[in-house]
Amino acid sequence: MTVLTEFLPESKYFSLTPLADGVWAALSIPGTGSWSNAGIIDIGDQTIIFDAFATPTAADDLRIAAEKLTGRQATIVLNSHYHLDHVNGDQVFKDVPIISTKLTREQIAIQQPKFIEIFKDNAGLLDQTKVEIEQEKNPEKRQELEDLLGEYSMIIKDTERFKLTLPTITFEDEITLNGARISANFITYGGGHTSSDSFLYLPKEQIIFLADLMHIGYHADIRQGNVDHWLDILKKIKNLKIKKVVSGHGTIGTAKVLDDMIDYLYAIKQISIDWIRSGGTIENVDQIDVPEKYTSYGAPSIFYYNIKSLLEKKK
């Protein structure tokens, strides 16, 4: 039996939102070391963790919450892609199967040790971020830096616990996890946000956990990805029956947010084209005005990183 809604476990790293019987979104609290959204799914005889946060400490709470919600320990962990903020908590679940695509596993093996070393050799990182906060006058950018300072601080605090933890099971296109109550499809349509992105789809419940293929209220980072492939993936996902969408960063939405995400990607593509046509350069992209539609989005610096990335790829 799953826990009643009014008895949801609490954590300073994330908040839990029930989506259906046995399905919860674990939404990151910015600046606490979770740094991305996750999910807990009780399929009836097994408990799935979708993504595992950026720090072991936040992942500890995720594991405890899953056990309290489902009455059993986590039995499967799914990695959507290789980025540290989604997989660095894997080490808390090293005693259970961890599933990803073959390419994501390869990228974790290459990239995670680099991320770990960056934070272990962190001389000046926190001090520099504090200086940037003091100098920043824009309230949205200042908030972004304050959140980053919190994430960095928690990651650095946890560095002694860091140990490369690789997925133990890989798949090519799709793997179905059939439980006594819920069937969950772990699917990849290729790479968009990164070289390989996977999502979790619950067809009966019409719920989808899209990880960083979806950002709601945040600028989506395209630097390690391919915008055209990302657009193709989202258009393909639109063919699925969907009522609720859990983003990798931001909130929970309906199927409409797929169109919003598609619009955002088209927008940054067009802005980069228009900028070059008007004589703009990579060096002065900070002169571009963020479209009014996106001025309230979190992580505003990502907008400019995105334009620079698109321009560099056109060279």
Rank of each mutant, 00 (worst) to 15 (best):
A26H: 04
S247C: 11
D197V: 01
H193P: 04
N88V: 06
I276L: 15
I156R: 03
Y201D: 04
R72D: 04
L311F: 11
G280W: 03
D289F: 10
Y218T: 06
I288Q: 02
G217A: 09
T75H: 02
K204D: 15
I175C: 01
S36D: 15
L240C: 03
T295L: 06
L103I: 13
W35N: 13
I276G: 00
G22M: 09
H229R: 14
Y13L: 02
V87Y: 03
G33P: 03
W24R: 10
S11Y: 06
E172M: 06
G150T: 07
Q287E: 12
E312A: 10
S100L: 07
L125D: 07
F171V: 07
K241V: 08
D51V: 00
I64P: 00
E136V: 08
I29L: 10
L84I: 14
D221F: 10
L149C: 06
I242P: 05
N37L: 09
S278W: 00
I208S: 03
T101V: 01
D42A: 06
E292G: 05
H193A: 14
E205H: 01
Y201P: 10
E144G: 04
S11E: 11
G217P: 07
A74T: 15
D274T: 02
A20I: 06
S247F: 04
L149P: 04
N37F: 09
F303D: 04
H249I: 05
I282D: 11
A109F: 07
Q128I: 08
N37E: 15
E283Y: 09
E106L: 12
K315F: 14
V3R: 13
S28Q: 13
G191K: 00
L177P: 00
M214C: 10
S11L: 08
S196E: 05
A54F: 08
S183P: 00
S36N: 12
A184C: 14
V246N: 09
R142C: 00
G248A: 03
L69G: 07
L69Y: 02
Q287W: 01
F115G: 02
G298S: 07
G225M: 06
V96G: 08
A54D: 09
I108N: 08
K94E: 14
L200E: 04
D147S: 06
I262V: 12
I29H: 00
D51S: 13
K315I: 15
S15H: 15
G298D: 10
Q112S: 12
F53T: 07
I116C: 02
R181L: 15
T32W: 03
Q46W: 03
S247L: 04
L310Y: 05
N239G: 15
Y266A: 03
W275Y: 08
T129Q: 11
K241H: 09
I99Y: 06
L103W: 02
N88Q: 12
A20Y: 14
E144D: 14
S272R: 07
S195V: 03
E117P: 00
Y13F: 15
G217V: 02
S309A: 13
H193Q: 08
L16S: 09
A65I: 05
V92R: 12
R63Y: 11
E205D: 11
E205F: 12
D212F: 03
E6W: 05
H215Y: 14
D45Q: 05
A25R: 05
S15P: 06
Q128T: 14
F115N: 12
H219N: 08
F119L: 12
T165M: 12
D42E: 13
V131S: 14
